[in-house]
């Protein structure tokens, strides 16, 4: 049977999704990036191959996320798309009349406004990563609570505790202050969830018309405390789709399906799992920009370069 592969290479996680012609998710993988995108892309492909071969044949591949170019070059993607478009596409197929998408990932948080299935506005955090997954990860580790129980604890809170949400440095020192005063952990975590939601709505969501249905996706959507804080702040139900943590990859697969309507895929096949990849970098001394150029090698061949401001090092 024919199928499409979507890969979302994010800062914290790498996701692999295979969808069939009807757009249904056949497999979905959520792996931690662990700072090693190349290795994890190969590992993810290997696991995906084990799950779908020999029943399915991949006839289109899309990549998204901050590592989309790297992944695109490695696997031979038909479409390489930014994560805003990918997330919007996925949300609007899962919840067809969706008007607002909250997406909070490892480093980015975004809001996407759709009207009639079309993206009409979006915003992304610019200079500050307060309230994204990495910070929650950090705090969970500091409090020695597994991240998957972190949000649940917030729901047990009975007393409101106010935490500053403007900046993670302020938030952390506020949390420590409250903890040393003797506040209960669930109350502090709940305060943190509310602070992050406040910051998100005020910063990323500023000036946006937030209309239902609201879909909440990205890794942080697993956190029921944040979901509850959103619902409390907005007075509207917030939907977390079943595949909330792999929506970017679903979108990439859907975009790939659109892209290969009339052409053959450039997917290199699962054989690349076994190929050696490595990267190297150098500083170009062609001008005063002194660009840091990164190269990726497949076996001994350079297959991609990026980081330069001019076209001098464009491939190949």
């Amino acid at each position: 049977m024919k199928a499409y592969l979507g890969i979302d290479v994010g800062s914290v996680s790498i996701n692999f999704v295979v969808i069939n012609e009807a757009g249904e998710v056949i497999t979905g993988l959520y792996l931690r990036t662990k700072g090693r995108p190349i290795q994890m892309i190969q590992e993810g492909l290997k696991k995906t191959a084990e799950l779908i071969l020999p029943d399915y044949e991949i006839i289109g591949v899309g990549t998204t996320g901050s590592g989309r170019y790297l992944a695109g070059i490695m696997v031979g993607a038909d479409v390489v798309k930014n994560e805003i478009t990918a997330h919007a596409v996925a949300a609007s197929t899962m919840v067809p009349d969706v008007q607002t998408v909250f997406e909070i990932g490892g480093q980015d948080s975004k809001i996407i406004i759709l009207r009639g299935g079309i993206v009409t506005d979006f915003a992304m955090n610019t200079v500050c990563a307060a309230g994204t997954g990495s910070f929650l990860d950090q705090q969970a580790a500091r409090l020695n609570i597994p991240i998957n129980q972190f949000g649940g604890l917030a729901l047990q809170s009975s007393v409101p505790v106010r935490i500053a949400g403007r900046c993670t440095v302020f938030a952390e020192s506020d949390m420590i202050h409250k903890q040393q005063m003797g506040h209960q952990i669930p109350d502090i975590i709940n305060g943190l969830c509310e602070a992050l939601v406040r910051n998100y709505l005020n910063n990323v969501g500023k000036g946006k018309e937030i209309l239902p249905p609201i879909v909440f996706q990205g890794g942080v959507a697993a956190n029921v405390g944040i979901k509850a804080a959103f619902e409390k702040a907005l007075g509207e139900p917030v939907l977390v789709p079943r595949h909330f943590d792999i929506m970017g990859a679903i979108g990439a697969a859907q975009l790939a399906q659109e892209e290969v309507q009339n052409k053959r895929t450039s997917f290199k096949g699962f054989k690349i799992i076994g190929l050696p990849y490595h990267t190297g970098s150098f500083e170009c001394d062609g001008c005063s920009n002194v660009c840091e150029v990164v190269e990726i090698y497949e076996e001994d061949r350079v297959i991609g370069r990026w980081g330069s401001r001019c076209s001098k090092w464009d491939i190949v």
Binding site: N82, E83, I84, T85, T120
Partner: peptide, 25 residues
Amino acid sequence: FLDEQTGKAGMSTRLEAFTDLMRRK
């Protein structure tokens, strides 16, 4: 808002998404 960041990826992502948005509109 620009500062000493030299990583272009974040900006490219936003510009690409913005272009998609305008084109669809």
